[in-house]
Simulated scan of single mutants.
Amino acid sequence: MIAPLHARALRCLAQREHSRAELARKLDGLGSADEVEAELDRLADLGLLSDARFAEAYVRAKAARFGSSRLKAELARRGVAADLIGSALHDACGGSEPERARTVLRRKFDTPPADAREWARQARFLQGRGFSTEIIRSVLKESPGDEPA
């Protein structure tokens, strides 16, 4: 018979990739802290649990909708190490941040900003999606007459 801790871990990993910290939170309460850590180590040794693989999958799934800042923050919140975050972002996004910002903006707004109020609205939208100020300015300046007064 499979232990409840191991069974729960396998069920979670069968649904989607998890970071080590996420899976530890989900397994909390099914055993002692030492048992949970031992199970996580076992899963990592078997190649079933990998923060690097989780980060790559997360970035691949979300990169079309969010900027690098938001992706970094979400991965850090999920317990992924900074070096793994940087590697995943570099591999999946590369230098396409302005292109992604343009795509996200055009998907939400059909027309370029007509006045300062609309320019600010579109800029706030991109900022909420995690795009940097420089990229927001460059993307919104591409249309004539869209600079705020």
Score class of each variant (00 low, 15 high):
78 R>G: 05
57 A>S: 14
122 Q>S: 05
36 V>L: 07
26 K>F: 13
86 G>L: 06
45 D>K: 12
120 A>C: 08
137 R>V: 10
147 E>Q: 13
107 R>E: 11
50 S>P: 02
61 A>F: 02
122 Q>V: 03
95 G>P: 06
13 L>D: 03
137 R>P: 00
149 A>V: 12
24 A>V: 02
40 L>M: 05
49 L>C: 07
94 G>W: 02
143 S>C: 10
124 R>A: 12
117 R>Y: 10
144 P>M: 04
13 L>H: 09
43 L>D: 04
105 L>G: 00
86 G>M: 00
86 G>S: 08
11 R>T: 15
14 A>R: 15
117 R>M: 06
122 Q>L: 00
133 T>V: 13
21 A>S: 11
119 W>I: 01
115 D>F: 11
96 S>D: 14
62 K>S: 15
3 A>C: 10
72 K>Q: 07
2 I>V: 15
52 A>Q: 12
136 I>R: 00
50 S>N: 11
138 S>K: 06
96 S>T: 11
135 I>H: 03
81 A>N: 05
5 L>D: 01
78 R>E: 06
49 L>E: 05
30 L>T: 04
17 E>H: 15
9 A>R: 03
66 F>W: 08
48 L>S: 10
139 V>T: 07
94 G>I: 06
9 A>S: 03
19 S>D: 03
112 P>T: 02
62 K>A: 15
4 P>M: 15
62 K>C: 15
68 S>V: 15
137 R>H: 10
144 P>F: 03
127 Q>K: 15
124 R>H: 10
57 A>K: 11
64 A>F: 03
112 P>H: 05
135 I>W: 08
136 I>C: 00
28 D>N: 05
108 K>P: 02
82 A>N: 08
33 A>S: 12
134 E>G: 12
102 R>C: 10
111 T>S: 08
2 I>S: 15
39 E>I: 05
38 A>N: 07
60 R>I: 03
19 S>Q: 01
132 S>F: 09
144 P>V: 01
132 S>P: 11
142 E>N: 05
134 E>S: 13
34 D>H: 14
47 G>N: 07
19 S>V: 07
88 A>R: 05
88 A>C: 09
128 G>M: 03
92 A>N: 11
70 R>G: 01
14 A>W: 11
12 C>N: 09
124 R>L: 13
111 T>D: 10
25 R>M: 06
45 D>T: 07
38 A>H: 10
17 E>I: 04
93 C>R: 14
54 F>E: 00
33 A>R: 13
37 E>D: 13
9 A>L: 01
103 T>P: 01
105 L>H: 04
31 G>P: 10
35 E>L: 12
